[in-house]
């Protein structure tokens, strides 16, 4: 059954779901063994991850192939859109968890610790803070001595990255408009530039993380500040990486002449994802770097 004869496409039996789940399970098992210092863990995790990667890749390739073969009806496209919206909702919720960790620490945890003179005498709840036993925070961008750390200066890389993401968001929409107007050149240029911005952003984020470790003594272990900082920026960078990959897939497909004005879910999803990454960054910029 296919779009041509008006039916909803129902795929044939396949072992991929079983293999993907199995790969994930083996990867998880290996990761746990490795975390607990058992040697073969890394290899087991790598094997599981490889199985997972291979079949996820084949699965996506297959769905793209099906889309190009024209089996998906408008009904199916609607289902895809709802699924993508639902997926983004889960990612919003995950970000909310991390932001909640940050705001809870600032609004509640630190003042409560500071109020407890018996357990933590002399500790003041001033953000940024690595807690009563952590290193002392300096002004952003200052070079720390022993038992000190400094946050990144907001006017530096974070401000630059905000501009880059802002530009990339406009470019992504411009590329999308290109498809709607059936202007292929605009679509390809826009996507290419969006990806370039995305890669630039990721490179700068990686550099700033290296800088934090090397220059500012700001690490994952720097109390609640380090933990929330790296959790939020790291998770955001991961999302940006996945979104860039999605955009790259969309660019490859567009280059092959795929996507039509009325059949564009793959592109739309990638652009949605990128806008989500953009929007999340605004919150990051304000709450993590600025305030």
């Amino acid at each position: 059954m296919s779009a041509a004869d008006g039916g909803y496409y129902v795929p044939k039996p396949t072992s991929w779901p079983f293999l993907v789940a199995g790969g994930l399970c083996v990867a998880a098992l290996g990761a746990v063994l490795a975390l607990n210092g058992l040697k073969p863990g890394t290899w087991i995790a790598a094997f599981g991850a490889a199985v997972l990667a291979v079949f996820v890749f084949r699965w996506f390739a297959r769905v793209i192939g099906e889309a190009e073969a024209g089996v998906y009806t408008p009904q199916a496209e609607r289902a895809f859109r709802w699924a993508m919206a639902g997926f983004l909702l889960t990612q919003v919720a995950l970000f909310a968890v991390l932001f909640a960790a940050l705001l809870y620490a600032r609004r509640y945890a630190l003042p409560w610790i500071a109020a407890n003179e018996l357990l933590w005498p002399g500790f003041d709840a001033v953000w940024p803070s690595a807690g009563p036993n952590g290193p002392v925070a300096l002004e952003p961008g200052m070079l720390p001595g022993p038992n000190q750390f400094a946050p990144l200066a907001v006017g530096d890389i974070p401000a630059l990255n905000t501009l880059i993401l802002f530009a990339s968001g406009i470019l992504a929409t411009w590329a999308y408009r290109g498809l709607l107007r059936e202007n292929r050149a605009q679509l390809l240029t826009g996507l290419f530039l969006t990806i370039a911005c995305g890669l630039g952003f990721l490179a700068l984020q990686a550099y700033s993380h290296v800088l934090a470790y090397a220059e500012f003594a700001l690490t994952l272990k720097t109390g609640i500040y380090g933990a929330t900082f790296f959790a939020l920026t790291g998770f955001h960078a991961l999302q940006a990486l996945i979104a860039v990959i999605a955009l790259a897939v969309a660019l490859t497909r567009a280059f092959k002449g795929q996507f039509q004005a009325d059949r564009r879910f793959g592109l739309e999803a990638a652009v949605w994802y990128w806008h989500f990454v953009d929007a999340a960054w605004l919150f990051l910029f304000v709450f993590v770097y600025w305030l």
Partner: peptide, 11 residues
């Protein structure tokens, strides 16, 4: 990390 450890400012 010290998300849940008061010594590091967590709870």
């Amino acid at each position: 990390t010290q998300f849940f450890d008061a010594a590091g400012g967590g709870d």
